[in-house]
Amino acid sequence: MNILNTLVAWQWATLAAVPAAIILLYFLKLKRQPQRVPSTYLWSRTIEDLHVNSIWRRLRRNLLLFLQLLLILLIVLSLMRPGWRGVELMCNRFVFLIDHSASMCATDESPNRLENAKQSALQCVKQMKTGDVAMVISFSDTAQIVQTFTQQRRLLRQRINDIRPTNRPTDLHEALKAAAGLANPNYTRLQDNQAVD
């Protein structure tokens, strides 16, 4: 989980003071009504051994105080803006470009880079909704379409799994060009001149 910091230090300090102030105010506001009784003899005997845990007892019975503290806690939490960083598919047309050049055989990640890349691609496939289409391109110095646009996730998974490592160098331009052309043919032509360079 990541926390996006939205406040500076002194603002955080002010915020931290709020729950403390609530508890403090709660104890300050406790004003006891005087009541005349015949004798406090029995009462003082009653509360004699309750003194030890009286603070906890008092706190336990105060739902309102706890609701206030809970509210403050929730506000603090929302100000912290907690969230998970990850990949989410936003559109309904995807092109998965998977590099299977020699460098992808490096085992600095376990089991190797290619396997990890394939796993990431499979994760994305899993996220696809019904009606979304995707294609798979594997590339090294040349790009080849492993699977054209399809809705069948089972087929996509199978194709991704079938990608095998090669011992060729990497050419990203080639792959992007192929992908751009397939994903959005008109747009690709427009961009062609710049992309080649």
Binding site: P34, V37, T40
Partner: peptide
């Protein structure tokens, strides 16, 4: 409620 009991004697 919260009371302060005062002994009458």
């Amino acid at each position: 409620g919260d009371l302060k009991l005062v002994d009458s004697e």
